[in-house]
Design a protein around this nucleic acid. Structure first.
Lengths: 235, 235
DNA sequence: AAACATTTGTCCGTATGTATT
DNA sequence: AAATACATACGGACAAATGTT
């Protein structure tokens, strides 16, 4: 069955302890030797766990000194609440959506990973075309955990605003935890959706929105027409 | 002395070989057993090196199958204090620059507007190619107010680091006040600079850096190869 | 299908180096 | 100077996933 490795369980144990406030921000964890004694494992196993936490940015190590709980405030606060629609509206443009597809299906690997779902879990899919002043500007596909938001599709079909739909289910605020942007060439279907020639430049944005507890609630992919859109990040 | 660990030298060796095109994208690396024999080290040492490359996103491993060269692009963090060089280094890649042009001339309209300069004011121009592991990744043009930074060009020619050059003139800290990203198609000259075909997708980033008083000190334009770069915004 | 070889993943143990306290 | 703590490197053994015969 699902055998979980020792180092992973130790990593989650430490993570949990930190989350619980067992260790304060900036405080020193027990030494590797101590931890290995506590968990009755080899020191290397503890090191493996700690190394994973370092990667996550949860702790950091200081050679000869110890392992310390990282302070959260170091992280960059750029683009936390940047939404494209908002900025389009702020520009005074008439922005709306054309819905192409509202459905529920098993999450693919990409969606599962982003939303931290188990295999076979279902997601709601919200696909459409973003319009500004009647011009097709973007093609988007958004995925939401179906179990957590049973009525999402109905809400979306009525008001077609993701933010508002989240509000209905009690999520009044959420932040973008990841934005990844690449430049790609339009294939035939995307080009057709956006009224472009095949081979045009597109901005592809992949984003993850999370609730205030840090749980991912939306995985979005958007293709913007490169001719019409600029992504602006202001501090 | 500057003692470099064995696993690190192995990691850079493999990185270099991949950059050189020794291994194709998606192809399998020699097995851990083979590599450890090649480098005359323990298998664990090779594993340590590979693990670092996996973190960098340069390769990925498949349990029971092998280690493969990732087709993945290099992530570039756009953040308040994140700079190209830094983020590339943070990824463990060997990043440096090739200078194409250092000169002083009257600012064009775009530069004047961004740097808030009067008509006819001069700017220093710093143009070059950004390299990661020897591969051309970006083409950049940076403009600085000449009057405020008289010795900028000399500094840049010596250490070729913008951050360090600012330090020399007393600017120890500055933040990115604007980042604007669009997708464009490579023209012939840019394509040539970046070893791409004309018509490839590019990410064009326009940025303004300002000192702690909010005065703009740098106007930068960068064209990233869309194949190799992802812009990532994390909170 | 089943047995086998290959390859990565996990875990243990030991020793030594290097930075900090 | 000594003790403590993390970093590196070696070695061995078995598990788990994959590919081949």
């Amino acid at each position: 069955m699902n055998k979980i490795s020792v180092w992973k369980t130790i990593a989650t144990r430490i993570t949990r302890d930190i989350a619980k406030g067992h260790y304060e921000s900036g405080s020193k964890l027990p030494s590797e030797a101590e931890l290995s004694k506590q968990f009755s494992v080899n020191r290397h196993t503890v090191r493996h766990a700690i190394s994973a936490l370092v990667e996550d940015g949860l702790v950091y190590t200081k050679h000869g000194s110890g392992t310390f709980v990282a302070t959260k405030s170091i992280r960059y606060n750029v683009g936390k609440r940047v939404r494209f629609h908002q900025s389009a509206q702020a520009l005074g443009h008439n922005a709306n959506k054309r819905i192409l597809n509202l459905s529920t299906r098993a999450a693919d690997d990409e969606e599962r990973k982003a939303l931290k779902l188990r295999k076979g879990t279902e997601v709601h899919i919200f696909e459409g075309i973003g319009l500004i002043a009647g011009m097709p500007i973007s093609h988007f596909i958004a995925a939401f955990p179906a179990k957590r938001f049973p009525d999402m599709l109905e809400n979306l079909s009525q008001n077609s605003s993701i933010t508002n739909s989240f509000k209905v289910v009690g999520i009044t605020d959420y932040t973008r935890t990841l934005t990844r942007i690449t430049s790609v060439i339009a294939d035939t279907t995307t080009a057709k959706n956006l009224n472009l020639k095949t081979g045009s430049a597109l901005l592809r944005s992949i984003s993850i929105n999370s609730d205030m507890d840090g749980k991912p609630i939306e995985y979005g992919r958007t293709w913007f027409s490169g001719d019409h859109i600029e992504l602006t990040i202001e501090n």
